[in-house]
Amino acid sequence: MALAKRIIPCLDCEKGRVVKGVKFLDIRDAGDPVEVSKRYSDAGADEITFLDITASHEGRDTTVHTVEAIASQVFIPLTVGGGIRTLDDIRTMLNAGADKVGINTAAVSNPEFVREAAERFGSQCIVVAVDAKQVSNGGEESKWEIFTHGGRNPTGLDAIDWVKRMVDYGAGEILLTSMDRDGTKIGFDLVLTKAVSNAVSVPIIASGGVGNLQHLVDGVIEGEADAVLAASIFHFQEYSIQEAKAYMADNGIEVRQ
């Protein structure tokens, strides 16, 4: 017996609806987040990640209500990310029923925030989300840089150094998104995923680029990810969670069935 690798559908939500951008543009509607979460949970999803991409403050209240509604009906772990900037934001989301919060931009602008958050709420609920983009050229040793604001803003931070620092500050898990792969459906950046997974002691969720079930398998076996996250292949019902789990199990990966 062993710990199962996790499949995590991701709900990118704006103003209370699930959307999924391709390279963060061209948003399509994929439904009501409570219904979608319930459907995924019933189908055997191991966790739900809810990413709030609503920019405005009015939208934040909608998000809190949505999180409350999901947490009242879905009894698997729920991570909420997007716009988490203060200890109060974290408390609000945990009180609404989130089990973990994802911190991205706020960690870059104030790394101490991650330390304070982990000390106050415990590392188990602090997920640091990083958006990494390859900056090395072919033939060079691979290097990735951290970007913020949906991939628009470079930070100058080396991705490997950054995740090590975040774990040192108390991050309990890393949600790693390859900006080069996000929305492409050509698979995870496996070199990046493996480099990050080997650099730190905590679990890694691979994200960005899933287009088929083999990509999930590759993320675990070659990328050494502890969990795999995908959105569009599940939202638009190209594959079901059950199919994904069966495929992973057939490839020798321990999954919860």
Partner: peptide
């Protein structure tokens, strides 16, 4: 190598 924390679904 096993990651710590022990996070996820186990038997």
């Amino acid at each position: 190598r096993l990651k710590v924390p022990h996070m996820g679904w186990n038997e």
